Deep mutational scan, measured.
Amino acid sequence: MTEYKLVVVGAGGVGKSALTIQLIQNHFVDEYDPTIEDSYRKQVVIDGETCLLDILDTAGQEEYSAMRDQYMRTGEGFLCVFAINNTKSFEDIHHYREQIKRVKDSEDVPMVLVGNKCDLPSRTVDTKQAQDLARSYGIPFIETSAKTRQGVDDAFYTLVREIRKHKEKMSKDGKKKKKKSKTKCVIM
């Protein structure tokens, strides 16, 4: 069974824990209790493949930012979460993405942009803004509501699919490099 290491990042209060708990335990946590770091595991079937999701729910508070490099190193894919009623959390996505790329030393890291709290009427981040940002990053965008469960499975499952595509691409690139290195030079 394939294991996928997913990391949920975003500013404090955007609903990272609520999304994760909704996926794992099928219930909505409405009281806000700032996370330092929590880890969850769940076995699911995605596109006919049974897999184990190892999900790291991270601290959004700035005082825990020193811990970010460590979990970013171990993560295979990242859910970059903002709240649709919090423009600052949307603007912060850029910083999370840049930090992930720096730590992973790669421009090509599996990510999904997630606009959470889409059940709320007080939207300050337009869907088109988020779609445009995701398009500019070359990553999928999904709106979710941890409260109603809308888009929750889709967000995590899409990230797994992005990781699969990335692994497939990397193995193809690896095979191309191996083929090239088999060419021999004969000096007579």
Results as ranks from 00 to 15, higher is better:
S145T: 11
K182V: 02
K167G: 07
K167H: 13
K169T: 11
D132H: 05
K175S: 07
Q129A: 12
F156M: 15
A155C: 09
V160M: 02
D132N: 10
I187G: 15
D173F: 04
Q131T: 04
I139R: 01
D153Y: 12
T127F: 13
T183H: 00
F141S: 04
A155D: 00
K167F: 03
D154Y: 07
L133D: 02
K169P: 07
K176V: 02
K167W: 01
F156R: 01
D154L: 10
A130M: 11
I139W: 00
L159Y: 00
I139K: 03
R161A: 07
V152F: 13
K167M: 02
R164Q: 13
K176S: 15
A134W: 01
K172R: 10
M188C: 06
K178E: 11
A130V: 13
D132C: 04
R135I: 04
R135F: 06
R135V: 03
S145M: 04
C185D: 15
T158V: 04
Q150L: 06
D132Y: 03
V152Y: 11
K175D: 13
E162A: 05
M170A: 12
K169M: 10
T144V: 15
V152C: 08
M188V: 11
G138R: 01
T127Q: 06
Q129Y: 07
D173C: 04
S136R: 02
K172V: 12
R164S: 07
Q150R: 10
V160Y: 02
Q131I: 07
T158L: 04
V152P: 07
D153R: 11
K177L: 11
S145A: 07
D173S: 12
R161M: 01
I187L: 15
R149E: 14
Y157R: 14
V186A: 14
Y137S: 04
S145V: 12
D154P: 04
M170S: 09
K172S: 14
Y137K: 03
A134C: 10
K167I: 02
H166T: 09
G151L: 11
A155Q: 01
D154R: 08
S145F: 04
I139L: 10
S136F: 10
M188Y: 11
A130E: 05
M170G: 08
Q131S: 11
G151W: 12
V125R: 02
K128G: 08
D154W: 03
G151E: 03
R135N: 07
D126R: 01
R135C: 09
I142H: 02
R135H: 10
M170W: 12
K165Y: 06
T158D: 12
A146Y: 04
A130D: 02
Q129S: 05
A146S: 12
A155L: 15
I139V: 08
H166Q: 10
L133T: 03
A155S: 03
Q131V: 07
R149W: 04
Q129T: 08
L133W: 05
V160S: 01
Q129L: 07
F141V: 12
K178A: 09
Y137Q: 03
L159I: 12
K167A: 12
T158Q: 10
A130H: 04
F156W: 07
R161Q: 14
D154N: 09
A155N: 00
D126N: 10
F141A: 02
K177A: 00
Q129E: 14
C185S: 15
T144I: 15
A146I: 03
Q129V: 12
D173G: 07
K184V: 00
C185E: 15
K167E: 12
A155E: 00
T158F: 06
A134S: 05
R135S: 09
T158R: 05
L159M: 03
E162D: 04
Y157T: 14
M170R: 07
Q131M: 12
G151V: 09
K169E: 11
R161L: 01
L133R: 03
Q129G: 09
D132T: 04
T183A: 06
K128Y: 05
G151Y: 02
K169A: 11
K167Y: 10
H166V: 06
R135T: 11
K177V: 05
T183L: 01
I142N: 03
E162R: 01
G138I: 00
R135E: 06
R164P: 03
D154M: 08
E162Y: 01
K180W: 09
K178V: 08
I142L: 05
M188L: 09
A130G: 05
S136C: 09
S136M: 13
D132Q: 07
R164D: 15
T183S: 13
E168F: 06
T158K: 10
G174L: 10
T127C: 13
H166D: 12
K165C: 02
E168W: 02
A134I: 01
D153G: 10
D126P: 02
C185G: 10
F156E: 00
G174T: 09
T127N: 12
V186N: 15
K178R: 02
K176A: 11
M188S: 14
Y157K: 15
K178L: 06
S145R: 01
K182Y: 09
K172D: 12
A155F: 05
G138H: 01
E143D: 12
K165D: 15
I142R: 03
K178N: 11
F156I: 15
K179S: 13
Y137C: 11
A130R: 01
R164V: 14
C185Q: 15
R135Q: 12
A130N: 04
K128L: 07
D154I: 05
K177Y: 11
V160E: 01
L159C: 04
K165A: 12
T127Y: 09
K177H: 09
R135D: 15
F156C: 13
L133Q: 04
D126Y: 10
E143G: 05
V160N: 01
I187V: 11
T127R: 04
S136P: 04
L159S: 00
D132E: 12
F156D: 00
Y137G: 02
V125K: 14
K165W: 00
I142C: 06
Q150F: 04
V152W: 15
V160L: 05
K184L: 00
H166M: 13
V160F: 04
E162G: 04
D126H: 04
Y157H: 12
E162P: 00
M188P: 15
T144G: 06
V160I: 14
I163R: 00
D173V: 01
K128A: 09
V152G: 05
V160C: 03
S145G: 15
K167R: 07
K128V: 07
E168V: 08
R149V: 10
F156S: 02
T158C: 06
D126S: 10
I139G: 03
L133G: 01
H166I: 08
D154F: 05
A155K: 00
K178G: 12
V152L: 15
K177W: 02
D126M: 06
M188A: 14
T127P: 09
V186G: 06
V152A: 08
E162W: 03
V152R: 07
S136A: 13
K128S: 11
R149T: 15
R149A: 14
V160T: 02
D126K: 07
R164K: 15
K128H: 06
K175R: 03
D153I: 13
R164F: 13
R135K: 10
V152N: 07
Q131K: 08
H166Y: 13
Q129N: 03
V186L: 07
Q150M: 05
L133A: 05
Y137P: 01
L133P: 01
Q129R: 06
L133N: 02
V152H: 04
R149M: 06
I187Y: 14
K180A: 13
Y137W: 14
K178P: 06
R149H: 08
V160A: 02
V152E: 07
R135M: 10
D153H: 13
Q131W: 05
T158G: 04
K178T: 12
T158M: 05
V152S: 08
S181L: 02
E162N: 04
G151T: 15
F156H: 01
T127E: 10
G138V: 00
F156L: 15
K172T: 12
Y157V: 14
V160K: 01
D154A: 10
R149L: 05
G138A: 05
L159V: 07
K182S: 11
D153Q: 13
I139A: 06
L133Y: 06
Y137T: 06
Q131R: 07
D126L: 05
M170D: 15
I187K: 14
K178M: 09
V125Q: 05
K169G: 11
K178Q: 08
R135W: 04
R161S: 11
A134P: 00
D153F: 11
T183G: 11
D153M: 14
L159Q: 00
T148S: 08
Y157P: 06
R164A: 05
Q129P: 08
A134N: 01
K165I: 07
T144S: 06
E162H: 02
A155V: 12
D153C: 12
I142S: 01
G174V: 09
V186K: 01
G174S: 13
E168A: 12
